Amino acid sequence: MNNPNTFSFITEDKIQLTMNLYRAKDNRKNVTIIYFHGGGLLYGVSDDLPEIYINKFLDSGYDFLSFDYPLAPEAKLSLILKSAYEEILYYLDNKQDIFGLENNDYILFGRSAGAYLSFMMCNMLINNDILMPKAIISLYGYTRIDEMQFNVPSKHYNKLAQVPEESIKKILSAAPVTYGPINLRFSLYIKARQEGTWVKYLCNEENPAKYSIKDESLKYFPPTILAASTLDPDVPFKASKLLSRIIPESHLITIYGEVHDFDRDTNNSIGISVYDEIVNWLENKI
């Protein structure tokens, strides 16, 4: 894999965000895949996608651009969405002069919370009559944070040792955080899911429906490919299944098992086969 070009962008709220661009060398399609990482919006890093998967996109001729974004609870969901949206606009306004890319065409890709951001960005772009993506790739994603499963204590995470409040205080920062490695901030997510307070970490007392996409809006979305596990302990499988029924030209890849990020283990053939199917699907849609 070729080394990325790194770009910095400062939002209106003075948050510095980093973007890493990997350029396809051969069979260039002049289409950019914009990637948002997962982590429940509480943790995660922009370069978390394993190299083997990035290479599949590059080898197929797609450029790959990863974004970071401010994390909760230091940044509330309204600020996270605003910052990510500004990043998209920055890309669209500067794709040639700064990024050196030749075409407007792009795809939004996210895993888990990153897929949620991809859906929310697409909805905001449509509502503001701005060029929407050619397609969306959603791995174990969702479009609503008012799901019941997100707002009650998780049986899965309550099987783990309880996270003490004191350890959380040591994690939190007084300023916005954009880099949240799993070894430093995952306990924050565990505690939020153990208590059923994850959504409150994101938006305090605001109605989570405000940050959820209505089914009617999804009918205007571009072709979308989704992949999720039937017994996902983090995000209900029904979220992806419902999206596949509502979004036009959508395709759902079903993984049978009790796992969330099925593509984490690159030694497991499931992840490889899913990305192969995604690339093949894109060939027929883009």
Rank of each mutant, 00 (worst) to 15 (best):
E12L: 02
P223H: 00
V199G: 07
L231S: 14
D47K: 08
S273K: 13
Y43N: 14
E147R: 14
F9D: 10
S250I: 06
I255D: 02
T197E: 10
P4W: 05
T230N: 11
S46R: 15
D59I: 12
L117I: 15
F237C: 09
L231W: 09
Y179I: 09
E165Q: 12
E206Y: 08
Y43W: 15
Y69F: 15
F221C: 04
A228N: 12
N2G: 11
L77N: 07
A161V: 09
G114F: 01
D263E: 10
Y22M: 05
P164C: 11
Y35S: 05
G110H: 00
Y211I: 08
P223Q: 01
L81N: 07
P70Y: 04
P248W: 06
T224P: 14
S138C: 06
S250E: 04
Y189E: 04
A209T: 11
Y35T: 07
N55Y: 10
I168Y: 07
R245A: 06
P181A: 09
D276V: 02
A161G: 07
I34V: 12
V177S: 06
G271W: 07
T230I: 13
F7T: 08
R28Q: 14
M124W: 09
K76P: 11
I278T: 04
D234H: 06
N5F: 11
D129A: 06
D47F: 09
Q149P: 08
N104D: 15
N2H: 12
S173F: 01
N30T: 02
E283G: 10
F57Y: 15
V199S: 08
A209L: 10
A135R: 02
S217V: 13
T6I: 15
I270C: 02
Y22H: 15
A115N: 02
M1Q: 11
W281D: 01
R245P: 00
V31M: 10
S118F: 01
N55I: 06
R185Q: 09
I10C: 09
M19V: 13
L160M: 12
N207F: 00
I54D: 00
I33L: 12
Y201L: 10
N30E: 14
Q149D: 14
C122Y: 00
M120W: 07
L188Y: 03
T230V: 13
I182S: 10
S8M: 11
F237P: 14
Y142A: 02
T6V: 14
D263N: 09
W198D: 04
Q194S: 01
F109W: 11
Y189M: 05
E249G: 01
Y85S: 09
P4T: 08
V279T: 12
N284R: 13
N204S: 13
Y189V: 01
S66E: 12
N280D: 15
D129N: 10
P208I: 05
L17Y: 13
F9R: 10
S250V: 07
Y106A: 03
L49Q: 04
L139P: 02
K82E: 11
F36C: 07
L252Q: 02
G180N: 07
Y116M: 05
N55T: 13
K25E: 15
F221V: 03
C203K: 08
T178N: 03
G271R: 01
G44E: 04
S240L: 00
A113E: 03
L41P: 03
I98S: 00
E86C: 07
I10A: 06
A239R: 08
P133H: 05
P73D: 15
Q162T: 12
N3I: 04
L188Q: 06
V235L: 05
F99E: 03
